[in-house]
Simulated assay, not measured.
Amino acid sequence: MLEIIPIGVMVQADQARDTLQLTIGHHQLSGKLVDLRKPLLVLEKSSEPQTAYQTIGVIRKKYHFKTRPRAMISKPS
């Protein structure tokens, strides 16, 4: 089983859901939603007598952070 460990807080910067802000500790990053050139498959391996893979999902978009993190002066909430 995969354990999910939170690393920060993501907040939508606008209603169109195109941009968001990611806060990790005392650093803040701004990102944009972009399309992937080639979609990615999410696969699950099943180890029965033969090894087989089952498609769980397809990833077509990603959030792209192209600027360096900004340091926040105050402590994050």
Rank of each mutant, 00 (worst) to 15 (best):
S74D: 11
R17W: 06
K32R: 14
R17D: 12
L29M: 15
Y63P: 04
E44V: 10
K38F: 00
A52S: 10
M72Q: 15
K62R: 14
I73L: 13
T67Y: 02
Q21V: 12
E48N: 13
K66A: 05
P69T: 05
P39T: 07
L22G: 09
V11M: 07
M72K: 10
S47F: 00
L36G: 06
L33N: 14
R17N: 13
Q15W: 00
T55V: 15
T55C: 11
L22D: 07
A71D: 01
P69L: 06
K45A: 12
M10C: 14
H64P: 01
T19H: 15
K38P: 02
T51I: 10
Q12F: 06
L20K: 02
M1H: 01
R17Q: 14
H26R: 14
I5N: 11
L20H: 03
V58A: 04
Q54T: 13
T51V: 10
Q28T: 12
Q50M: 10
Q54P: 02
T19F: 10
P76V: 07
A13R: 15
E3D: 09
E44F: 02
K62E: 11
P76R: 05
L22M: 12
R37T: 08
H27F: 13
P49G: 03
Q28K: 15
E3H: 07
I7Q: 03
P39C: 02
Q21H: 10
L33D: 11
P6K: 04
A13M: 13
M1G: 12
V58H: 06
T67E: 14
L20S: 06
G31N: 03
S46Y: 00
Q54A: 05
T19A: 10
V58S: 04
P39V: 08
I59M: 06
E48A: 13
P49I: 04
